[in-house]
Amino acid sequence: APIILDTYRVIADFEKTSKHEITLHTDDLVEIVEKNENGWWFCQCESKRGWIPASYLEPLDGPDEVEDADPNYEGEEYITIQAYKAEQEDEISLVVGETVEVIHKLLDGWWVVRKGDENGYFPSMFLSKAGK
């Protein structure tokens, strides 16, 4: 049977920054082949195929629907596997090997994490589930 892929609309121009990404423009329609939880989605648009940030897409059917999971205020333990220095004021800076609590897993790959009294957005690709 044919595989039906979800169609998404591009909501802002995106310029590729590495080889396996593709450049897309506002209102382009893309089919999603793979949704990676790090926030990079593999898509095809006409003859182009490559990765683009999930945050630049909205579902064609039901753009107002929230696809993100609900926040979990109890938190889920993760360990940082790479350091990240906050570039925006709503982000959190962490070094390698810190234990944090993930409060909200967003599809765009930027998760809300809590460390002590602090919280902020952190790249999910720099986190590994504790105990794994």
């Binding site: 909501i11 802002a12 920054t17 990404e21 990765w51 945050s55 790959g109 930027w110 790249p123």
Partner: peptide
Amino acid sequence: SIKNPPQNPPPRPPPEMRRKQA
């Protein structure tokens, strides 16, 4: 075959999207 995703974090949502989230 699908290549591995980029090794850098994806960019934060564009300003258009942040307005919608707010």
